[in-house]
């Protein structure tokens, strides 16, 4: 199981300011489940993904796989990367244009020194990613494939190492609508058949609804609501989630909520509750009883999701307590 505890990633900005891109995140991804991580662009979800992959150094907190902490040494990272693989958004860019499909898929094997039956392993990975018969794709170059086929090659390149967890950053955002469904059902099938776990990063709640078991909503570097996907999306609690859900078709939130203002800069995270300046409950006055806490007290980091539905919001806490 992939676990992150109190994960923090900070970037130094010119002028001595510090951007807190990931500001305290607890997250678990187990084999056999798909977790969606949703939020606006700029909320830190891609940074979180890169950090979970060891591509970006964490400035605080811990990442562990199967209880073994992710080390900074090359050897530890390499072992970790056999277990946790990446699928990027744009398959056209994610494949080296001068490498054939075979080379692209076999590269992982070569890096990790897996030399036995390389063609067989490559063929198997391609077949599992839905490219059949695999041998016919061996010598094709990325530009000869369609977008969906390229994404399958990227997925095959990840699968060939037989990882436990895939981290997919917007895996279908750059694909045609007709191909999206195919790639998503491929992820579902890999979960069902192979017990693969996945963290799918998306800004599309509909997509999360159709494939995820659990969902985490991220706002300004922190997870503000999490829980089983049908609970979170049918009964959203956090005002931010309610605003996101309100604009979906057949939304449980009656009126569309348009948030005031823009996502603040990660170097200027508001004190107290970070969502307060844009919160519709604060603006409408319904948060008045807890306003003091909204202004002065950070709602805190949501603990690891144990399958329960939670939100980091003073108003929600007050209502639940009442």
């Amino acid at each position: 199981m992939l676990t992150a505890r109190d994960l923090r990633v900070e970037f130094g900005l010119p002028g001595g300011r510090t951007a807190r891109a990931v500001d305290g995140v607890d997250l678990d991804v187990a084999p056999g489940e798909i977790v969606a991580l949703a939020g606006e662009s700029g909320c830190g979800k891609t940074t979180l993904a890169r950090t979970l992959l060891g591509l970006e150094p964490a400035t605080g907190g811990r990442i562990a796989f199967g209880g073994t902490p992710l080390g900074r040494s090359g050897k530890a990272l390499k072992a970790y990367r056999r277990q946790v693989q990446l699928v990027l958004q744009d398959p056209s860019g994610a494949l080296n244009p001068r490498h054939t499909v075979y080379e692209a898929v076999a590269e992982g094997l070569r890096i990790h020194g897996i030399t036995d039956d390389e063609p067989g392993r490559v063929a198997d990975a391609l077949a599992r990613a839905g490219l059949r018969p695999p041998e016919r794709f061996f010598l094709a170059y990325p530009h000869e494939l369609s977008g969906g086929q390229r994404q399958r090659v990227v997925i095959a390149g990840a699968l060939v190492l037989e990882p436990s967890i895939l981290i997919a950053d917007e895996p279908v955002a750059s694909l045609d609508a007709s191909v999206r469904g195919e790639i998503l059902s491929l992820l579902l099938r890999l979960k069902e058949d192979a017990g693969l776990g996945a963290l799918v990063i998306t800004h599309d709640l509909g997509l999360a609804w159709s494939i995820a078991d659990r969902i985490a909503i991220m706002y300004l570097g922190r997870i503000v609501e999490q829980g089983p996907v049908e609970q979170v999306l049918t009964a959203p609690r956090h005002p931010y989630t309610r605003a996101l859900v309100s604009v979906l078709p057949d939304s449980p939130v009656p009126e569309p909520i348009v948030l005031a203002g823009e996502l603040p800069d990660a170097s200027r995270i508001p004190g107290g509750c970070r969502f307060r300046p844009r919160c519709q409950e604060v603006a409408s006055g319904s948060a008045l009883p807890v306003l003091g806490r909204c202004e002065g007290e950070d709602p805190g980091v949501l603990g690891p999701d144990g399958g329960s539905h939670e939100a980091a919001c003073h108003l929600v806490h007050a209502r639940m307590a009442a």
């Binding site: 054939t100 063929a123 094709a140 000869e144």
Partner: peptide, 26 residues
Amino acid sequence: PTPEGGAAPLHDPAPPSGRRPGRPVS
């Protein structure tokens, strides 16, 4: 290293009829 050597035994040099449209052929 190029994959030709390793891939050759599996690569079907002359796919039978019915090459479907959209199939990549290098």
